Computed example of a mutant assay.
Amino acid sequence: MSKILVINSGSSSFKYQLIDPESGERLASGLVERIGDSLGRVKHRCAGETLEEELPIPDHTAGFAEMERAFERAGQPLDGSALAAVGHRVVQGGDEFFEPTIIDDRVAERILALGVLAPLHNPAHHQAIVAARATFPDVPHVAVFDTAFHQTMPPAAYTYAIDRRVAAEHGIRRYGFHGTSHQYVSARAARFVERPLAELKQIVLHLGNGASMCAVDGGRSVDTSMGLTPLEGLVMGTRSGDLDPSILFHLHREAGLDVDALDRLLNSESGLRGLAGTGDFRDVRAAADAGDAQAQLAIDVTTHRIRHYLGAYLAALGGADVISFTAGVGENNAALRAGVCAGLEWFGIRLDAALNEAASGVAEPRRISTPDSRVAVLVVPTDEEAEIARQTWGLVGAAA
């Protein structure tokens, strides 16, 4: 009864993991994709084996039925009695949801309504929530919000300098994202360095296709790079990150781009893809190593932006005890880590080149700074699903 089913849903797919929240053990995982296409696919992994099947999956409800069938085919029936709860990742909680929340009809409706702030995410989460609640009606469902960890930011950090009435009417403020990852990594880093979380000043760099940074003071988010939406901040796979807002007016007037075209440009055709022709950092790095000047520029711009925020957060925190690199690029690209940390000895940041270049090997934190570095620089593999399971279990276990 202590198993948690973690759901991370998109508009045409959802990922799932069955987790023992007390041990963190993955009991099964899978993906249901191409929902609504003529032919969908279910991929289920359990006990070292992978089962795959292609068949029509008209909607998320059908997808959950196929997920159940995949568990049965793997000899691991997943009925309600096997679950303590279902934990749902929800990207946008607005300024309403500060912590993990039991999902009832009202909460589900509010998650959908907050889709105005996350149109690519919250409606898809809502579809999965409706389907999952119908599939497991007697099991508690819990929403874990990406934005919740950042609700501790002070007003100076989350307020935009626009007309306050307009901002209040339309919910315009910095919300931040990747909060589940930032929370997990900062807590895991504290355990690794064997110091109380409440004592530490930390900077977490979540660097993947989507990328953000967070200043964490005593376990609380005090600033983060993403804003009203996940577009603001760092250079990402296909997102521009920070830019002068007047660029949008200029492109509308001079290039005739309408709102939808500008949205596509900044969210889907910019970032690494816009600069180097591909949004995959591995491909960009390979091209740069082969002498592609444009790919090298993309890396330089990316590194410059990260260092820009790193300096800002060192100032905001008054220094740092721990800096952690995480997510796909942060965990696996030694050259980017070296570029970010180069020349920062003045701040007590000294990277050990050999430790930085060494492969992690296991999904455990490791130190890549020198013994005399005042700041511990770490690589900490993130585990958002484990954090969702932990928070879900913390809520339903406490209520049991």
Rank of each mutant, 00 (worst) to 15 (best):
E384M: 10
E385H: 09
S360Q: 14
I349P: 03
P381W: 01
G348K: 03
A354S: 04
Q391V: 09
E385C: 10
S360K: 09
V380K: 00
L395N: 11
P381L: 05
I368S: 03
A389H: 14
A359H: 12
V396P: 07
Q391W: 04
I388F: 05
A353K: 06
F347M: 11
R366S: 04
R374T: 11
S373V: 04
V362I: 05
L378F: 03
G361R: 06
P365C: 04
T392S: 15
P381K: 07
S369H: 03
V380Y: 01
R350M: 00
L355N: 09
P381E: 07
A353S: 12
G361H: 08
L351Q: 07
S373L: 05
G397K: 00
R367N: 02
R374P: 08
D383G: 06
I368K: 00
P365G: 12
R367C: 09
T382Q: 06
V377A: 07
V375P: 01
G348R: 04
I388W: 03
D372R: 02
A358R: 08
E384D: 11
A376T: 13
T382K: 02
V362D: 12
L351W: 03
D352F: 00
I368G: 00
S369D: 06
A389L: 07
E357H: 02
R350N: 03
P365H: 06
T392R: 11
W393S: 14
A389K: 04
L355V: 00
L355G: 03
G348W: 08
